[in-house]
């Protein structure tokens, strides 16, 4: 009994550590990446390659005063940043990094991750509503409608994959794709010819789920100043910031597990945690690349894309796969 409790605590500590480390250093990576794309150095003063920059940022954010605007709903205002970070950390618990490196392998791992991901929308709503700022309210309304519309095609795509594999355990989903890249879900097979399209849909949806450019309507700074976190400073803002990057890691991990064979080597050799990390960081680099290349979409463009294009295609794919699975 005590061993399981200890196990759980260690797992959570590792998950928090991993999430926080990733969040901190992804900020650094993003700024360096942006610098590279924009032909400027990026942070390069603190430590070699500016590697101590996240530490300095953290110190700065933590020592600042936490200002609660007058008239704000204090409870919601305080809860929102925590709610942004906590689900992201919880989701790490069930993500398998390799055959053995997993905190808690759950039979409904996929469901759990999506349940927690939906909480992220909640935190944005709380933040926007609680801070009593018109920009915040507008941003939170946008972000929630965005979250709702993008969860639908995302989940339909996941159902397709779950149907093919017959399991909702992330570990099983990854194992089913082991043995070389031709086994990966992203490669079309006879029973699932539209899988690359599904991959694309899932990728777009995870961009939208994590509020990343070009779908960062919740914090569209040229319109809504800073969106839902307009009124946040100090570590409240820091938590939103870290939550965003933790969510990116989860999005990349999910894509890797669902489509890119998890920890499997592309050539069927030495499956290990190394491959998993390589894949998610390549995906994250793509996220960063996209953010610094594209302008932002409009809110109606975004909703139209989801409801008029992504959902019909993913539904069609679901039906097609269901039919083909029956045939083959």
């Amino acid at each position: 009994m005590s061993l399981t409790v200890l196990n759980a605590i260690i797992a959570v500590v590792i998950a928090i550590g991993f999430a926080a480390l990733n969040a901190a250093y992804l900020v650094w990576a993003e700024r360096r990446g942006a610098g590279r794309i924009q032909r400027r150095p990026g942070p390069n003063v603190n430590g070699p390659f500016g590697l101590l920059q996240p530490l300095a940022d953290g110190c700065k954010l933590m020592t600042k005063q936490l200002v609660i605007p007058g008239g704000a709903d204090k409870a919601l205002f305080m809860v929102a940043p925590v709610l942004a970070m906590a689900p992201a950390i919880m989701s790490f618990v069930t993500i398998p990094f390799s055959n053995v490196v997993v905190a808690k392998s759950m039979d409904v791992g996929v469901l759990m991750i999506f349940a927690f991901a939906s909480l992220g929308g909640m935190s944005i709503l709380f933040a926007g509503w609680g801070s009593r700022n018109k920009y915040g309210v507008m941003a939170s309304v946008r972000a929630v409608s965005q979250a709702i519309s993008y969860e639908v095609p995302m989940l339909i795509t996941v159902i397709t994959i779950v149907m093919m594999t017959g399991s909702m355990n992330l570990h099983d989903l990854a194992v089913a794709q082991s043995g070389g890249f031709w086994h990966w879900n992203v490669i079309p097979s006879l029973s699932s010819p539209l899988m690359p399209v599904s991959f694309l849909i899932f990728f777009i949806c995870s961009l939208a789920e994590t509020n990343r450019a070009p779908f960062d309507l919740g914090e569209a700074e040229s319109e809504l100043v800073a969106g839902f976190h307009t009124e946040y400073g100090s570590m409240g803002f820091g938590l939103f910031f870290m939550g965003e990057y933790a969510n990116i890691v989860i999005g990349a991990s999910l894509i890797t597990i669902l489509f890119l064979g998890g920890w499997g080597c592309p050539f069927g050799l030495f499956p290990s945690v190394f491959w998993f990390l390589l894949k998610i960081y390549i995906l994250i680099a793509t996220f960063i690349w996209i953010r610094w290349t594209f302008p932002r979409t409009t809110i109606y463009g975004l909703l139209n894309l989801s409801w008029k294009i992504l959902i019909p295609i993913s539904l069609f794919n679901l039906l097609l796969t269901a039919g083909l699975l029956k045939v083959f």
Partner: peptide
Amino acid sequence: FVMDLGGFTPLMYAIQ
């Protein structure tokens, strides 16, 4: 203008 539309990178190129 492109930054108003949410694209940051062209500003740096233009300024250069």
